[in-house]
Amino acid sequence: MDSANSQNGETKDAFQNRESTLPGLTTVPTSVTLSGEQFERLYLTPMTARQSSLAKHVGNPTPLALGGFVITTTPLSCSLMAWRGASGNGIAFTGPIVFLGGLLLLITSILEFILGNTFPCVVFGTIGAFWFAFAATMIPSFNAAAPYSSSTTDTAAGLASPGFLNTYAFLFVTMAVLMLIFMICATRTNIVYTLIFLGLLLVFLLLTAAYWQLGQGNTAIGNRCVKGAGASLFVASLCGFYLLIVQLFEAMGFPFHLPVGDLAALWVRNQKKLVSQERLSPSF
């Protein structure tokens, strides 16, 4: 035992002597600074390793959805604002809403799903489905509004009845909540995309107010809310046109890039603050 202790003691003394002769330890940096473009590629776009091989051979489907969006929202907004004597709150655009709005958005949602883009898939899928539902409500064969009429068979009278207006407004409330969620998520992308959802949020809020006011017989206030919804939808459609131009210019390889107000830099700064706080906070 004594010999063993002496050997251990000698070993410890020798180790301490060697440790005292070693150079001073330095701190190795463990944080990595990413540029705005690198951050966007890492966190705002899907990882290509998780995509199927088909994703490497297809184009960007987003302009298809934007084209269907603007080609339906622009004339509908003009109708809601009653330009050039337009009326009917979009009944005349039932066909375009189905085949240009709902169909193109649904196709794009499927393509975004294949590419692994969850957020665009959900956005285009839900808005496209809303277009289908909105058009189906105005088609007499679906018998959605006719039961609210006095004859229970007149779709046009049912669409203007207080019972239908007060009931259908709840769909607009739900869509407004959905647009609010989309707008919050869009702050990870760019300003133009965020403004589109802000405009749609105002559209559904104003349509909700309009339908409830019209259902209570307040025609003047209800019509003003409808026009306000049309104006908000028109602004959203203009933002959609701009974003469509930006993406098509990039797809065609134009030598310049139109600004969209990239918001990735804000998230990069917040990421840096979180990293610095984690480094300064004590660990237990």
Rank of each mutant, 00 (worst) to 15 (best):
L200I: 08
A82F: 14
L64P: 03
G36N: 15
N270I: 08
P162C: 00
T155W: 03
I221N: 03
Y43C: 08
T72W: 12
V173T: 04
I221T: 11
F15G: 03
R224Q: 15
L238W: 13
G199C: 15
T11R: 12
T187N: 06
V203K: 02
F130E: 03
N270T: 08
M138F: 07
G215V: 00
Q277Y: 12
S161T: 00
K227V: 09
G116E: 08
T21M: 14
M175T: 04
A176Q: 11
S149C: 05
L111I: 09
L165I: 00
T137V: 15
A186G: 07
W131G: 01
L54R: 06
P23G: 08
Q38I: 03
M1C: 05
T27N: 11
L171W: 00
T94N: 14
M183T: 09
T30Y: 09
L248A: 07
N143K: 13
T73I: 13
F15Q: 12
A145M: 05
T72I: 14
A144W: 15
L280N: 14
L180V: 12
L248T: 08
S276H: 11
A92S: 14
R50S: 08
N117D: 10
P255F: 01
P29F: 01
A135V: 07
M47N: 14
L263Q: 11
L180M: 13
L195E: 05
G261M: 04
G217T: 00
P259L: 03
F197K: 11
L238G: 05
V275L: 11
Q247A: 04
G217R: 00
F234Q: 08
A65M: 06
I71V: 15
N166E: 00
C225F: 15
A144S: 10
W212Y: 01
T62Q: 10
L22A: 11
V98W: 14
P96T: 09
P75C: 09
T73V: 15
K56T: 09
L263M: 14
L66M: 12
G102A: 08
